[in-house]
Nucleic acid binder design. Structure first.
Lengths: 153, 153
DNA sequence: ATATAAAAAGACAAAATTGTCTTTTATCTT
DNA sequence: AAGATAAAAGACAATTTTGTCTTTTTATAT
């Protein structure tokens, strides 16, 4: 349908934002997150595994276990999350889908698309989880269909 | 996977560009296009039907039939094609997938994403098929994996 | 009239994405 | 040691997207 980020990626962003808002002192159970964020538990588990193996999150098994951000949220950018889940296809591929489209033998849209793409990349690269969670708490913005940041500590 | 435009949409763009490069004097058979552009004939047929019912292309059955652009290519923008195939989801929806995210009750990414999205929209809105086909012919750019505009008349 | 060309329509199949469920492994608590 | 908690792993199902094939409709040409 055309949607920039996959659903997995969107879920991953929401969950990461949630974790950043909770700080990285304690581990947060995925079950809790899945309920708060209204995302299927098992599906979310898989997504977070991708972020864990990318080194953005760390997990711990057993009681008091869960996941948390490795670094403090101000050091994690949206770009890292997007790349970990959706790869860099969006940020490198030709808008007309031509393999190997580049400076050497571009498609007619190459230049314009490269600019637009850079706009997307820049936005993702210079937006941190910390920044968003701070803004979210300050104005009690939405992190789920209905609810905001208010209860998140 | 995250890819801005669906494959259908990318095919639709390539085909529209092909048609624009051929002018709108004669009807071009879809079979011919599908071969030149290396896109599955039946799949392409469906995609072009969407563009036809959106009023961007017109078709004619029987011998010497095919499809052509309704208006001359300088009046058709990429935005029209993208909206006809992928809808305006990409250009309106929340980056975090929250339904009804807007000024009234935004998500933390709302503002930044709105800007980025406008960048995409503007690029699509102010790029015409004519502009691209002109550029494509002038520099023999790529419209297929291997081939360029050279043979397109 | 008949044959041919080509889009339209619709049934069907394959692949990718999204979502669910069960089992295994690691860790903690008692 | 036994039970409880929670992530990891993997099998399976539903849905969406992508792709293929056949039949129908409309027009042309002989």
């Amino acid at each position: 349908m055309g949607m920039l980020l996959s659903k997995s990626c969107v879920y991953g962003l929401r969950a990461s934002l949630y974790l950043a808002a909770r700080g990285n002192e304690t581990y947060i159970p995925i079950r809790e997150m899945s309920e708060k964020l209204e995302i299927s538990f098992h599906f979310l588990t898989k997504i977070l595994q991708q972020l864990t193996s990318a080194g953005l999150l760390e997990s711990y098994k057993g009681p008091n276990g869960g996941v948390r951000t490795t670094r403090s949220g101000d050091e994690i950018t949206l770009l890292e999350i997007v790349e970990a889940i959706d790869g860099d296809y969006l940020l490198t591929e030709c808008a007309l889908g031509l393999p190997g489209c580049g400076i050497m033998k571009p498609c007619p849209l190459h230049e314009k698309w490269a600019e637009t793409r850079d706009g997307i990349r820049t936005m993702l690269e210079f937006t941190t989880l910390h920044e968003l969670s701070k803004k979210g708490k300050e104005f009690d913005l939405r992190i789920t269909a209905e609810g905001g940041f208010e209860g998140l500590s």
